[in-house]
């Protein structure tokens, strides 16, 4: 009796008899004439990113590098968040200046995470065209559970982490996946559902509030 594996592979082989034996998987040419890069200045990309993140009803702020700690404290206070979890390697200058207790994630249980007001993380890359932040468990991001269980996610994005579109984001992420098998999460706005009469409701299971601070960008434009 052949195994399921052998049998399925055999069925596939038989089903694709029309494909010449000499043809290998790599021989099939796939043309990629879609856009690989966005021809826009850094400022334009950051502007677009802020606009598109805000489109998902997430809140966006532009913050100067020097005032990050103050702004983090202010926005947490405004949300009534007094206990925030953060990855152990969150930079000191990103920690709220006062009034907020920051709990470093050292193997907190899921129940403990569930009881915390919010989470502060960085990200791996931000995508302007789609208003997406991407986490891959790299520096300043921590493990997946910390940005999932608390109801409020405050994400800090360095202005130079913003890229134009999906192809540029994938090329930022690919090495971490190939070499370290890093888990990747694409986040575009807060959790949402349209399951009831297509009426959009923000927040079902994931964080109901997403707030994004763009660090190092021109503070003139503040979308919210």
């Amino acid at each position: 009796m052949s195994s399921a594996r052998e049998e399925i592979l055999g069925r596939i082989h038989a089903a694709t008899r029309d494909v010449p034996e000499s043809e290998k998987a790599d021989d099939v040419a796939v043309t990629r004439s879609y856009r690989q890069r966005h021809e826009a200045s850094r400022d334009e990309l950051v502007e677009l990113f802020a606009e598109r993140v805000a489109d998902y009803r997430a809140t966006v702020h532009h913050v100067r590098r020097a005032s990050v700690a103050d702004v983090v404290a202010e926005v947490c206070e405004a949300r009534g968040a007094t206990r925030m979890v953060a990855p152990a390697d969150l930079p000191t200058e990103w920690r709220p200046s006062d009034g907020v207790e920051v709990i470093a994630d050292e193997n907190l249980s899921h129940e403990q995470l569930d009881g915390i007001d919010g989470v502060i993380t960085g990200c791996a890359v931000g995508i302007a065209e789609t208003g997406t932040i991407v986490l891959d468990g790299g520096p300043r991001q921590g493990r997946r559970a910390i940005s999932l269980l608390p109801d409020y996610h405050l994400c800090l994005v360095e202005a130079d982490q913003v890229v134009g579109g999906m192809p540029e984001a994938v090329s930022v992420l690919v090495d971490g996946v190939r070499s370290a098998g890093r888990p990747v999460t694409f986040i575009s706005g807060p959790s949402a559902t349209s399951d009831i009469e297509l009426d959009r409701v923000e927040g079902v299971h994931g964080p109901r509030t997403l707030e994004v601070l763009i660090v190092g960008a021109d503070p003139r434009t503040t979308a919210s």
Partner: peptide, 13 residues
């Protein structure tokens, strides 16, 4: 433009 969440995992981490 993009759905709220896309999770990608590679074996176990």
């Amino acid at each position: 433009r993009m759905n709220p969440y896309t999770s990608v995992w590679t074996g176990t981490s």
